[in-house]
Computed example of a mutant assay.
Amino acid sequence: MAKVIQFAFDCADPAALAGFWAEALGYVLAPPPAEFETWDAALDAWGVPPEERNSRSALIDPDGVGPRIFFQRVPEGKTAKNRVHLDVRAAPGLTGDERMAALSAEADRLIAMGASEWYRLEGNAMDEGIIVMYDPEGNEFCLD
């Protein structure tokens, strides 16, 4: 039986990074537990002080297909290249100039939201072309 997975990001600002990835992927914030109307109501009931309310956040795929994405605040900043990264499939099935144009358009959209471009690998015999980017906290990801 296959295991259910989630991706976890260590970060400085879980709410902000969750907001970026929600918009980037078309995900939504995970809803509060069923017995609470809002996350503030749940956190109030659990006695979570205001200064701890941005210690974590989570996103879900509204269609229930993709994995959950979890964001947790950590005290240290990012110091090295990620060993695992996300590939955002922004141009599946496209090739050549059409592929790079679609990837460029998506890169521009994400840059407007706080991402930055690292480099481009134009298409060749082994790869159709990708754009390697950083999210707002410096985590590498690829537009594929």
Rank of each mutant, 00 (worst) to 15 (best):
D40Y: 04
D87P: 10
P62D: 11
L25Y: 05
P67R: 05
D40E: 15
R53V: 01
T38N: 13
R109A: 12
G64T: 05
I69M: 11
M100G: 02
P62Q: 13
F71D: 00
E35F: 02
T38E: 09
A42G: 09
A41Y: 09
W46T: 03
E37Q: 14
P14V: 01
A34H: 11
E52A: 09
E35C: 04
W39G: 00
A42K: 11
I69A: 03
S55T: 12
A12P: 03
D10I: 00
R56W: 12
R73A: 15
F7T: 11
V48D: 07
A90F: 02
F20S: 03
V4N: 13
D13T: 07
A22F: 03
A22Y: 04
P50V: 09
F70N: 05
P92H: 05
D44K: 10
V84E: 13
P14W: 00
L94Y: 06
Y27L: 07
E52C: 05
A102L: 10
P67T: 05
D44R: 10
A90W: 00
A16S: 14
I5P: 00
P33Q: 08
M1H: 09
L25K: 04
R56K: 09
L59D: 02
L17W: 00
F70M: 13
T79R: 15
A8E: 12
G66Y: 06
A91I: 08
L94I: 06
R89A: 06
W39K: 06
F9R: 00
A18T: 01
E98V: 14
L29K: 10
V4L: 14
V65G: 04
A80I: 06
D40G: 05
A80W: 02
G96H: 08
P92K: 09
E76A: 12
I69T: 02
C11Y: 01
A8L: 13
R73D: 03
A16P: 07
G96E: 10
A2K: 14
L94C: 09
T95N: 07
V48C: 14
V88C: 11
E23L: 12
A90T: 02
L86H: 06
A18Q: 01
F70G: 00
D61I: 08
V4R: 15
P32L: 09
S57K: 02
I69G: 00
A12C: 05
L29H: 11
K78M: 10
D44E: 12
G96P: 10
I69V: 15
